[in-house]
Amino acid sequence: MIDVLYFAWVRERIGLPKERVETSAATVAALVDELRAREDRYAAAFADTSALRVALDQELSSFDAPLAGVREVAFFPPMTGG
């Protein structure tokens, strides 16, 4: 089980901020493929991953990163702080 978090328009498009996901995906990209296959709202949120960022256990990472040992995955658009 892995905690998956969504922020900003990704959260709005999927319709929830956080969920626990049962997955055996080896990489972030494989997890995204699983989520996309679930429902249209996931497919819409993950339509273009180049417009998204991913953090693994609260560190920015990449979509080809392995998921082994990761407890928390977060998906969000490019950040707009400052």
Binding site: F7, A8, W9, A55, L60, A74, F76, P77, P78, M79, T80, G81, G82
Partner: peptide, 23 residues
């Protein structure tokens, strides 16, 4: 670094609705 790497997302709310600020 704060602008592009701190995990904040700004949304602007006007009378016409709300819109996420694009990076």
């Amino acid at each position: 670094w704060l602008k592009s790497r701190a995990p904040f997302w700004k949304k602007e709310v006007t009378a016409d609705g709300a819109e996420w600020v694009a990076a």
